[in-house]
């Protein structure tokens, strides 16, 4: 409909006052579209700046019971780990993984980013949140195993072209170990579920 308004043929047939009105309304529509683009872009930036939503359930955790401070640190650090991972995979910046990943998880993701760089790919996530269930906390408090049910919208791009886009619901098995001032993701293994 909009496309037709802008054709010369249609404009010729309209009377002058109506043509003026259309001209103004088309300018307004363009401005609105521009505003929308800016807004969407800003919201996306904002979304990337905010860590994903993580809900921790530790009701059935054992053999060690979770400490107050740990029950706050785990969802915070896991959310920040996902935030940095999503940013690293979108912008192909392996250095971002240093903050919240260690061991095999860091090794895997670093390798993934390097192969993305080599292939000219990048991955964009729209994070719909994580339901994190703590399932094992070692007696010495040096490792925690968790199960994460994540809702994600994954978009894989080759250069500027989207080659894959799908909303998924994935279950991850996660192990986290304490670092100097935070918990680090040591293992992130997708163990089931793809379709939402």
């Amino acid at each position: 409909m909009m496309r037709k308004i802008l054709t010369a043929e249609f404009a010729e047939k309209t009377r002058r006052p109506r043509r003026m009105g259309l001209r103004y309304s088309s300018i307004l529509a363009l401005l609105a579209a521009l505003a929308c683009v800016v807004l969407v872009r800003e919201l996306r930036v904002l979304a990337k700046e905010n860590a994903p939503r993580v809900q921790l359930h530790a009701d059935n955790l054992g053999p060690r019971s979770i400490e107050d401070l740990t029950s706050k640190s785990i969802p915070r650090d896991y959310a920040l780990a996902w935030q940095t991972m999503e940013q690293a995979l979108e912008e192909n910046r392996p250095g971002l993984l240093d903050g919240y990943f260690t061991g095999i998880a860091k090794q895997d993701l670093t390798q993934r980013v390097h192969s993305q760089i080599k292939s000219g790919l990048h991955t964009r996530y729209q994070d719909g949140g994580h339901k994190l269930e703590a399932i094992f906390y070692s007696p010495a408090g040096d490792v925690m195993e968790l199960r994460d049910r994540a809702k994600l919208d994954i978009e894989i791009m080759d250069g500027g072209k989207v080659i894959y886009q799908e909303p998924v619901s994935i279950e991850y098995t996660v192990t986290m170990t304490p670092g100097a001032d935070r918990w680090l993701v040591r293992e992130l293994q997708a163990s089931g579920g793809v379709k939402p």
């Binding site: 090794q107 390798q111 993934r112 192969s115 292939s119 991955t123 894959y164």
Partner: peptide, 13 residues
């Protein structure tokens, strides 16, 4: 055609 394989530690083309 172009074949892509995306996994935990791989993104090949």
């Amino acid at each position: 055609a172009t074949f892509y394989l995306i996994g935990q530690s791989v993104a090949s083309k």
